[in-house]
Amino acid sequence: MKKTKTYFLRFAILFAVLCLCFILNLSLGSVTISFTDTLKVIFGFTIENPAFEYIIFNYRFPKAITAILVGGGLALSGLLMQTLFRNPLAGPFVLGISSGASLGAAILIMGASVLSSFLSLSLINDISLAIASSLGSFLVLFLVIGVSSKIRDTMALLIIGLMFGSITAAIVSVLSYFTDAERLQQYIYWTFGSLGNLSWQQLGILFIAIVTGIVLSILSIKPLNGYLLGENYAKSLGIDIKRSRLLIILAAGVLAGSVTAFTGPIAFIGLAVPHLTKQIFNTTDHKVLVPAVLIYGSIILLICDIVAQIPGKASVLPINAITSIIGAPVVIWLLVRKRKMVF
């Protein structure tokens, strides 16, 4: 009972930090809006400068919500994969799932023009892009699952993930060689990764996808805990391996796939956040970890986004670069402390 109390306190603090980062994210940017003005806008009071209100509602608010959905979604996807693959270095980016999503997007955007002019650009809308990149990430995920059942070695699996990434890059470059400039540009923009380009309608679709992923993950909490012992032990505990595996893969694929579809590939959040979370919540219980990584992932991406905006300056850094700068050292730190290379 004592344990639940300390977890509750930690969740409360984490949630408070999330709220703080959210407001900071709204107030900082090319134009700095004061903290009190930001709060006023959020709670519906009128402020002196109506332009600020416009900036917050039409630009920063959707972006901050995107950051929360994307950060939480990627982090949860990473947690699911680490448990499923019994591999502390698994994650949507490292295992090539993001490359799969890129492949899906590339085939939709550029492949159409290569095969025929049957598909017009107008057909490439938000939903079809989301479906294509989700399909791409599922394809790679199933391939990785197939390989992982044959290969138990942690490092070999990661190298295979890397190879899937290379294959995807190769296919993409072949496609881009044959495609026209307009479509190529559309794809390149997509790969830069951005949180700021989502309309409210797109946000709605992303929200539904993330919630679906979260619901599937919550339904998988018990089997996920069973998987901590290994597949055979999980089976001996009465867990339906095939069904739970499919459920977890579906959840991880929907989360990583939909996020990558709308924001482009964002590196390292999925890999690093579960480990950072376990530094705060010293547990392996997914009942605690699932909500914790969701909040922690959102916080990290909100912070990364604040950094990427460079407060007070008009220029914006690609979000992908910032997450890598934060994420890559975490991976190095994990490898250096090899004895603790447990998930």
Binding site: R86, Y227, L229, G230, E231, S236, T284
Partner: peptide, 13 residues
């Protein structure tokens, strides 16, 4: 119930 030879997946438990 079983006790197997394979190591448990997560030694962090």
């Amino acid at each position: 119930s079983v006790v197997l030879t394979e190591p448990i997946a997560s030694k962090n438990l």
